[in-house]
Amino acid sequence: RNRTTFNSSQLQALERVFERTHYPDAFVREDLARRVNLTEARVQVWFQNRRAKFRR
């Protein structure tokens, strides 16, 4: 699988949700994935990586 590149509008939407919660539930992830046209799995991994970055 190739690395996913996120465009600025996708990142903006992802970061907005991250500000609200670092652990979005499945419903939030599904909705977000639909809105930014990504798979739920990509959204889930983005949050895992974003939390790791946040802890650094």
Rank of each mutant, 00 (worst) to 15 (best):
N7M: 01
V43N: 02
R42Y: 08
S9P: 09
T4A: 07
Y23K: 02
F54W: 05
T5D: 13
T21I: 05
R42I: 13
L11D: 09
R35W: 02
E30A: 09
T39D: 13
L38E: 03
N49I: 06
N49W: 09
R29T: 14
D25V: 04
R55W: 08
A13Q: 08
R20N: 08
N37F: 04
F54S: 09
N2Y: 09
T4L: 08
V17C: 11
R51D: 07
W46P: 03
N2M: 09
R42G: 12
N7G: 04
R56P: 11
Y23L: 06
R1Y: 14
E30P: 00
R29N: 00
R16C: 13
N2P: 08
F27D: 13
L14R: 01
F6L: 15
E40A: 10
V36S: 05
A26Y: 14
K53I: 15
Y23P: 04
N2Q: 06
F47N: 02
A52C: 01
F18T: 03
N37M: 08
T39L: 05
R34G: 07
L38M: 08
V43C: 03
V43T: 00
Q12I: 11
T5I: 14
T5Y: 12
L32F: 01
A41C: 12
K53P: 04
N7F: 03
S8C: 07
R51M: 00
Q10F: 04
E19R: 06
R29E: 00
R29M: 14
A52K: 06
Y23E: 08
E40D: 06
E30G: 12
N37K: 05
R50K: 07
T39Q: 09
R20S: 11
R29Y: 10
R51P: 02
Q10V: 06
S8T: 13
R1I: 13
E40T: 08
N49L: 13
D31A: 10
N37W: 08
Q48G: 00
V28R: 04
R16H: 13
D25H: 02
R34V: 04
F18L: 01
Q12G: 07
V36D: 05
T4D: 12
S8E: 15
T39A: 05
R56K: 15
R16M: 10
F18H: 06
R50F: 06
T39E: 10
P24F: 00
P24A: 03
D31L: 04
V36C: 14
A41Q: 12
L32A: 02
A26T: 12
K53S: 12
E19A: 15
V43Y: 00
T39C: 08
F27K: 15
V36L: 15
F27T: 14
R3L: 11
W46Q: 05
N7V: 05
R1V: 13
R56A: 11
A33F: 04
R55Q: 15
T39S: 12
S9D: 12
F6A: 08
Y23M: 03
T5C: 09
L14T: 00
Q44M: 12
D31G: 06
R55F: 14
L32H: 00
R51N: 06
R3C: 10
L32I: 12
R35N: 12
V43W: 08
L32V: 09
L11G: 07
L11M: 08
V28L: 12
Q12C: 09
E40I: 14
A13M: 11
E30H: 08
F18D: 02
V36N: 12
T4Q: 11
R3W: 12
Q48T: 08
F18A: 05
E15F: 02
Q12D: 15
R29C: 13
Q44T: 08
V28N: 01
A52E: 15
A33S: 07
R29K: 01
R42A: 15
E19G: 02
R50T: 03
T39V: 03
N37Y: 03
R16D: 14
N37E: 07
F54T: 01
V17F: 02
L14M: 13
V28A: 10
R3P: 11
K53Y: 06
Q12A: 10
R3T: 15
F6M: 13
R50Y: 03
T4E: 15
N37C: 03
L11K: 05
Q48I: 07
L14S: 03
W46E: 00
V43R: 01
A13K: 07
Q12E: 14
A13T: 07
S9E: 15
E15M: 02
F27S: 14
R29S: 06
R1Q: 11
Y23Q: 07
D25Q: 08
R16E: 15
A33L: 06
V28M: 12
D25I: 06
V36T: 14
F18W: 14
R34S: 07
Q44Y: 09
R3A: 05
R35L: 06
F47L: 02
L32M: 05
